[in-house]
Each structure stands twice: as structure tokens, then as C-alpha cells.
């Protein structure tokens, strides 16, 4: 059973960088042993926590996208619970939601194309056509996950 999961864990600032990378290799080993694979790893670096956890105000965030079975994630979850310098972790299954989002996006573009063709227009919107929507602004996608400083 191949499913896609996202794992985020927060490492206490007490831990050294070696420990953080060691943790990654540990997880990698478990994933490989149980027949999964890591799609990508993202280190968000040290960020301020929104609230204190174990008297710590900061933490190192690491995101891993993992393909594998539920048992694999269960095992990782169990291991992370045991390691005491991991102060938070979260496992989310993402493949189904991604599918839903993808489907919605394609139906929307198809619909708009069909409507436009029915009105005798080119299927795609031409640049400079139509009025700018009230909420339209240039949100570039990379901007979305940027680290924001002011966490109340």
C-alpha cells in the first residue's frame, strides 16, 4: 500500500545539528527497512515557537514527505514519541486531499473553458482581458510558506 504522508517534527534547540541530521538518517533507515521512500526533506531551520514547549521558545522544524504504508508511519510515530529532544511531531496523510484538490482544479478550468468556447471566445483567458477582480493580487506560490516573524 503506497500512501503519501507528510511528517513535520520540531527538534529542541538543545539538540546539536548533528543530532538533527542523525535523526534524519534514523528516519531514513526506518523508511527504507519498511519499504517506503522519502520524496523530499525540507529543513525550515530554527523558528520561534508560537508558545513555549518545555521551556523552549525556539525549535528546528524539519518536513519530510514520505511514501509508504500506514505501519511505517506508525513505527516512525512511535520512535519520535520516544526521542526526548523531539518536542513536537505531526503526521498527515496527504495523497487523498491532493487528489481532491487536483480534481477540483481541473474541473474548474474545464468548466471555464467550456463556457468561454460557448460564448465564442478563446478557451484561455488572454492577457489584459476582463477586469481585475477585487481580490486578485500577485501572490506568488513560493511566498506562501515563507517564515513569518511576528507570531503572537
Amino acid at each position: 500500500m503506497d500512501r503519501k504522508y507528510e511528517l513535520v517534527y520540531v527538534v529542541s534547540p538543545v539538540a546539536t545539528d548533528d543530532q538533527v541530521s542523525d535523526l534524519h538518517t534514523q528516519i531514513e533507515a526506518v523508511v527504507q527497512r519498511m519499504g517506503g521512500r522519502i520524496e523530499k526533506t525540507e529543513n525550515w531551520g530554527r523558528r520561534r515557537l508560537a508558545y513555549e514547549i518545555a521551556h523552549q521558545k525556539e525549535g528546528t522544524y524539519v518536513l519530510e514527505v514520505i511514501h509508504g504504508a500506514g505501519d511505517l508511519m506508525k513505527e516512525i510515530d512511535r520512535r519520535l514519541k520516544v526521542i526526548d529532544y523531539v518536542i513536537r511531531h505531526l503526521v498527515v496523510r496527504v495523497d487523498e486531499t491532493e487528489q481532491v484538490v487536483e480534481r477540483r482544479r481541473t474541473t474548474r478550468t474545464e468548466q471555464s473553458r467550456r463556457r468561454r468556447v460557448a460564448r465564442g471566445l478563446a478557451p484561455d483567458r488572454q492577457p489584459g482581458e476582463g477586469q481585475r477582480g477585487e481580490f486578485e493580487d500577485e501572490r506568488d506560490e513560493d511566498d506562501r510558506f515563507e517564515v513569518t516573524e511576528d507570531i503572537r
Partner: peptide, 8 residues
């Protein structure tokens, strides 16, 4: 909130 990205 669980990940302390946002406060409770």
C-alpha cells in the same frame, strides 16, 4: 497549532 506554528 499543534506544531506551535500558531498559538492556542
Amino acid at each position: 497549532r499543534q506544531l506551535a506554528l500558531l498559538p492556542y
